[in-house]
């Protein structure tokens, strides 16, 4: 992966079978600046050997996402040292992450000081909606990347006065697949499942649901219109995410939102006493 920008453009590649020395591409930084840069590739091994080499086995057993995991642990240490409750909020696109967070931020005003880091491929529409609550919001435009990585969060954290906060909410890119593999250093992973998505999402996306600390069924005001089978969905959630705490709510009507907000305040209080 590109070390400069975190983008997922392949480094070494070929055109008509010929290796390309370096590729240049252009993309926008979070602040809107457009930059071009090259991805170098390894010089390779271009001389011939007329002697033979014995084969050797290297046992490595090293984590492939070791780089991300190390940064995630560093983030986690920082969050714990600051006594900051950190959430990683994930769902498929359109499940209601931004609407829930906007409502949550409004409800928590005066009770929990929150900030949001929001990731999207493009546009700052979500950030603009979240800013209407008055909470500090940092936008990460991932460009082509379908998930947030720990390093992006570490960068975005620099834009916030973390000491003045109780909770940091990270709204991930709308995607139920890739963000499952990338730890951001959060204390709680929150997976949203809207009633309009049917009942079998938890069974279709097992890694994401299995990693959930909290599952929130959203848009419950639309249960009847969507023909949503609540019992079946709850059974599927329990099966795919046995250790998750489950909430059901409607960000629009407000039903169930209070229980969710009380839970966050209790989690924050519990974190405080454990330090």
């Amino acid at each position: 992966m590109c070390q400069e920008c975190g983008c997922s453009k392949p480094g070494p590649y070929t055109i008509d079978g010929k290796p390309v020395k370096a590729s240049t591409h252009t993309h926008a930084l979070p602040d809107g600046t457009v930059i071009s840069h090259a991805h170098g590739r390894d010089p390779g091994h271009d001389h011939h050997h007329d002697h033979s080499h014995p084969h050797q086995i290297l046992d490595l057993n090293t984590g492939i996402l070791g780089g991300n995991d190390r940064v995630a642990e560093r983030n986690r240490d920082a969050f714990e040292a600051l006594n900051l409750l950190t959430l990683n909020v994930v769902s498929s696109p359109g499940a209601g992450k931004t609407t829930l967070l906007t409502r949550t931020l409004n409800e928590l005003k005066g009770r929990l000081r929150c900030a949001v880091i929001v990731g999207d491929l493009a546009t700052d529409n979500d950030a603009a909606r979240l800013r209407t609550t008055g909470a500090p919001v940092v936008q990460i435009a991932t460009g082509t990347l379908c998930h947030l990585e720990a390093g992006m969060v570490a960068e975005a954290m620099k834009e916030l006065d973390l000491r003045a906060l109780d909770a940091l909410i990270i709204e991930n890119v709308g995607n139920l697949v890739c963000p499952a593999s990338f730890d951001l250093g959060e204390a709680l992973r929150v997976v949203l499942h809207s009633v309009t998505e049917g009942e079998d999402k938890p069974l279709k996306y097992p890694p994401m649901f299995h990693s959930a600390d909290v599952v929130i069924v959203t848009k419950t005001d639309m249960t009847a219109a969507a023909g949503f089978d609540r019992e079946l969905a709850l059974k599927n959630i329990r099966q795919a995410a046995p250790r998750a705490k489950v909430f059901e709510l409607s960000s629009r009507s407000g039903d169930g939102v209070q229980a969710w907000c009380d839970y966050l305040i209790a989690q924050k209080a519990a974190a405080k006493t454990s330090h």
Partner: peptide, 16 residues
């Protein structure tokens, strides 16, 4: 309590 199944590792290389 998941004991195995989250692995994503480069285990070994055969090189010369």
């Amino acid at each position: 309590d998941l004991r195995r199944g989250l692995e994503l590792e480069l285990t070994a290389l055969e090189i010369s």
